[in-house]
């Protein structure tokens, strides 16, 4: 079943040039889809448009057959699309517990929020252990874990992850992608952007390659990983192997 559809999306910042220049995307329910592409391809911009932070200049975002193009971010969230931005997405002077509570803000139901936070603590004992600490005292990996845990409190239909592995040590990156898989196991569809293309595709079902604001290729993640042209252009392996 198609959960989310993006058609001919054009967007940019302020009066600047178009960053997205007609993007199409289809997200199936239950999938982990990974968007890759070089810097400036418009990956993060695409997520911002989908979650309503940035208004597109043209094109449409359709969620469960209904256009959500013109909705405010809090309205998009209520539909069931939760965005986890790149870095600094926490409330630094609130405790871990308060951050999770803010995750349930849109539920407007304190008891249900507490119940779900308990479930998050069960899945992430580290967060439970640190529940009284301010978010800015956590390590980078723990902060990312908290940001993703906070998204789970809402149990959204789709979670949008913007470079979840950015700036983290390799061992922790592995752990973060395990959490991405946990989203899927909890029945949450994942659309993520990854600079670490290899790792991202390894954990994904479907891949989408963006370049210069357009989608150049999409297909099953393992096909993309194996495709020599894409490897050469966007994954950089061939060049490394040949020592160029």
């Amino acid at each position: 079943m198609t959960l989310l559809e993006v058609k001919g999306l054009v967007a940019g910042y302020g009066s600047g040039p178009d960053i997205l220049r007609g993007i199409d995307l289809t997200l199936e329910a239950g999938q982990i889809q990974c968007i890759i592409g070089p810097n400036g391809a418009g990956k993060s911009t695409l997520l911002k448009v989908i979650c309503g932070i940035l208004k597109p200049r043209d094109g449409e975002v359709i969620f469960e057959g209904e256009s959500i193009t013109r909705l405010r971010p809090d309205q998009v969230l209520k539909k069931g699309i939760c965005f986890v931005p790149q870095e600094r997405s926490l409330f630094p002077h609130m405790t871990v517990g308060e951050n999770l509570r803010m995750g349930g803000y849109a539920l407007k139901n304190a008891r249900e929020t507490r119940k779900r936070i308990k479930e998050i603590y069960r899945q992430f004992p580290t967060l439970k252990q640190k529940r009284w600490q301010a978010a800015n005292q956590l390590s980078g990996g723990q902060q990312q874990m908290l940001a993703m845990g906070r998204a789970m409190v809402l149990s959204p239909k789709i979670v949008l992850l913007d470079e979840p592995s950015l700036g983290l040590a390799p061992l922790i990156v592995e752990h973060i992608f395990e959490i991405v898989r946990q989203f899927k196991e909890n029945g949450i569809t994942v659309l993520m952007v990854e600079q670490n293309a290899h790792k991202g595709l390894e954990f994904a079902d479907w891949g989408l390659v963006l370049d210069l604001g357009k989608n150049v290729f999409d297909g099953p993640a393992d096909t993309i990983l194996a495709d020599p042209r894409i490897q050469e252009l966007y994954l950089g392996t061939r060049r490394v192997q040949e020592g160029i």
């Binding site: 932070i53 809090d74 969230l77 600094r88 409330f91 630094p92 407007k108």
Partner: peptide, 22 residues
């Protein structure tokens, strides 16, 4: 609840938006 929303907006406006604070 409003107090939480206000403090969240103080600390990180963009993040407050992503958790559904208007």
């Amino acid at each position: 609840r409003m107090g939480y929303a206000i403090r969240a907006t103080m600390q990180n406006r963009a993040a407050a938006q992503t958790v559904g604070v208007n």
